[in-house]
């Protein structure tokens, strides 16, 4: 009997590699979902800083639209009227000629006077013009100076605003660190507090803690008692037991803790 032909069991070549890759892909997708989809980080909410500003230096102050002063219209020098030609016929009598001469003389005098008057008027006009030019010059200078001052003030304000923004960002960071470490210290102290049995309510104790830069507790003093001495003592003991206290590495934030820390403790939170 030739059974083997029947008894074979053919293992089909399944796409095992593809299946393996797909399985890995499923896990990778799940891990990515966990890592990026779920926020595992405990984020301290930043305290909100509000700057109260009297004036608003930030927006561009409306520049005074100073229309460039129109140059004064050039003064029209009045042309002195052309001297009138004496229309006197010369072919008359000598007397007439004499008379004419006299007349001429008068006319010449008149002419001279008129010319002088015109000259004076011209001079006056010129002087006026000069004065006006000078005035205009001064005015322009003034305006330019005002504009310069405006620009300088603006730049200054901007610089100040930037500095203020940087300072407030820094302030936010510092106060966040402060809040975080205040919480950490509170948690540590609370963990070490053994509450007396007769404690009622949620009384508050204020202590002044002197700290070394390493966080080591030097001394603890109760500045405002809760009214329950057993509880006050328990808090003082807890603070001493919590030494060294966690301190922020940030220098500015540390300043709120290091030489002296005013510590408020409530048994329940």
């Amino acid at each position: 009997m030739n059974v083997p032909a029947d008894a074979r069991f053919v293992s089909r070549s399944d796409p095992k590699l593809l299946a393996g890759v797909l399985a890995l892909g499923v896990h990778l997708a799940f891990v990515l979902l966990l890592v990026f989809g779920v926020s595992w980080q405990t984020q301290h909410p930043a305290p909100v800083m509000v700057d109260v500003w009297q004036d608003l230096p930030e927006p561009q102050p409306a520049r005074p639209q100073l229309a460039p002063p129109k140059p004064a219209p050039p003064p029209k020098a009045e042309e002195p009227p052309p001297p009138k030609a004496p229309d006197i016929a010369l072919e008359k009598k000598k007397a007439e000629a004499e008379h004419l001469k006299k007349l001429k003389a008068i006319e010449a005098a008149e002419e001279k006077a008129r010319a002088e008057a015109a000259k004076a008027a011209r001079e006056k006009l010129q002087a006026e013009q000069k004065k006006r030019d000078l005035l205009r010059q001064m005015e322009e200078d003034d305006l330019r100076r005002v504009a310069d001052e405006e620009a300088a003030r603006e730049a200054n304000a901007m610089k100040q605003a930037a500095a203020r923004a940087a300072a407030s960002a820094r302030q936010t960071e510092v106060s966040r660190a402060m809040g975080q470490y205040r919480d950490l210290i509170s948690a540590k102290v609370r963990g070490n507090t053994r509450l007396p049995d007769n404690l009622k309510g949620n009384p508050e104790v204020r202590c002044l803690v002197k700290l070394l830069p390493t966080g080591e507790v030097q001394s603890v003093r109760v500045t405002r008692s809760s009214g329950n001495t057993a509880y006050d003592d328990a808090v003082v003991r807890a603070i001493e037991k919590s030494s060294p206290l966690p301190l922020p590495s940030d220098r500015d934030a540390r300043a709120a803790f290091v030489p002296e820390l005013s510590f408020v403790h409530r048994p329940k939170e």
Binding site: R12, D14, P15, A19, G20, A23, V26, H27
Partner: peptide, 18 residues
């Protein structure tokens, strides 16, 4: 559990194709 999950997904895909 990670190993079990990987294996089971592998088999899931193999069986799916088969």
């Amino acid at each position: 559990l990670l190993g079990a999950s990987l294996m089971s997904w592998w088999f899931i895909f193999i069986k799916l194709f088969a």
